[in-house]
């Protein structure tokens, strides 16, 4: 059973588990990097888009260049693309090359006014004519209930009419229309720095038909060394980095812990195999850590095991920048950064 794929799968799992450990890992910042793409909200409510056109889609890229810390001025150019795509499954390739909205900026953010015409203009032609397409799905979605798990879910049926409003008959069972568009919007950005480094990044922007709109998560506080930073003192990473410290450079292990704003992590209903279930972002959320110096004990921590430590090899005087990103597992994202100096004498501690 599974004779032809099992060992490949097992082997790949082991290889994946053990790969990528040579050289610097992803938490070490020493080249041009994109650390995240932020939007006001991780997804758009499609119905409200119909009702309230001309909403603005604001996207900002959190990028890093070593010059940001050293003070060296490195110009960057941002080429943005907006299109419908299958997302990561298709490596963020657009569904149709001629249905792409493009723009270029010198700043790490862009704003775009979204309306239905813009959206429809991005859809591939065959989707506009296909019997079952995002367009028809959108139209159908308008007729559905607001519930992700409407009444009548899972009842047996033979045709769609046997099911309640908002449900369709699939394999003899009443199933709801998808809560989000199976084909999301995708934002791609290519960052080119003046020292000829190029990085491409992308993210999806979900189009929600029913259910509560997802929101970006939030940090509550950071515990750094013996000190604590409340969320009110933090600022989003795209607004710059908070200056901390200085720290004694003889401190080679610096405990760091991120605390989450529990209220920003939502629970949500979803349908799995015809059954309505309750998901919780608290279980899927994780924090990624990055720094320009030292090495984190864990590049990624979860809500369950959130303690971390930044370890330095030598007591070197330097400026260290640290980024932290919080992802809720549903494309919601929060980012922050702070910077501190490591100094040779004991001038202070957090």
């Amino acid at each position: 059973m599974l004779s032809r794929c099992f060992w490949v799968l097992f082997f790949c799992s082991l290889c994946t588990a053990c790969s990528g450990r040579d050289g610097d890992g992803p938490s070490k910042l020493n080249d041009l990097r994109v650390l995240g793409l932020l939007t006001d909200t991780p997804e758009f409510e499609l119905v409200s888009l119909f009702e309230m056109p001309d909403q603005t889609l604001a996207v900002s890229v959190i990028d890093f260049h070593p010059g940001d810390v050293s003070g060296e001025q490195v110009d960057r150019r941002y080429t943005w693309q907006l299109c419908f795509s299958l997302g990561a499954l298709a490596k963020f390739e657009c569904l149709a090359d001629d249905k792409v909205l493009e723009m270029t900026t010198d700043a790490p953010s862009m704003g775009l006014t979204l309306d239905t015409a813009t959206l429809l203009g991005l859809l591939p032609d065959e989707f506009l004519t296909a019997e079952q397409s995002p367009v028809s799905t959108m139209m159908d979605a308008g007729q559905t209930s607001d519930e992700v798990c409407p009444d009548g879910l899972g009842e047996t049926c033979s045709v769609d009419d046997d099911c309640q409003v908002g449900l369709s008959c699939s394999s003899g069972v009443c199933e709801p229309m998808p809560a989000t568009s199976p084909v999301p919007l995708v934002v791609r950005v290519t960052v080119e720095s003046s020292d000829e480094q190029v990085v491409t990044a992308a993210r999806t922007i979900g189009l929600r038909f029913t259910g509560e709109l997802n929101r970006n998560p939030k940090f509550a506080a950071f515990e750094i060394g013996m000190g604590r930073l409340d969320a009110t003192e933090l600022m989003p990473a795209d607004d710059g980095c908070l200056q901390l410290g200085p720290f004694d450079s003889t401190i080679l292990q610096l405990p760091i812990k991120a605390n989450f704003d529990d209220s920003s992590l939502q629970s949500y209903p979803y349908v799995d195999d015809g059954v309505c279930r309750e998901g919780d972002e608290f279980e899927s959320a994780f924090v990624s850590w990055y720094s320009t110096s030292g090495a984190f004990e864990n590049q990624v921590v979860t809500t369950e095991y959130s303690d971390n430590e930044l370890e330095f090899e030598t007591p070197t005087a330097e400026t260290v920048r640290v980024y932290a990103s919080l992802r809720d597992g549903r494309n919601g994202l929060a980012m922050t950064c702070f910077e501190f100096d490591r100094v040779e004498s004991q001038q202070g501690a957090p």
Binding site: R33, V34, A88, R188, A201, A202, R203, S325, R327
Partner: peptide, 15 residues
């Protein structure tokens, strides 16, 4: 031959 940074999951999609 390249990669795309996946901001949704903080990972890279190799091309």
């Amino acid at each position: 031959v390249g990669s795309v940074y996946n901001s949704d999951s903080d990972s890279y999609e190799g091309i």
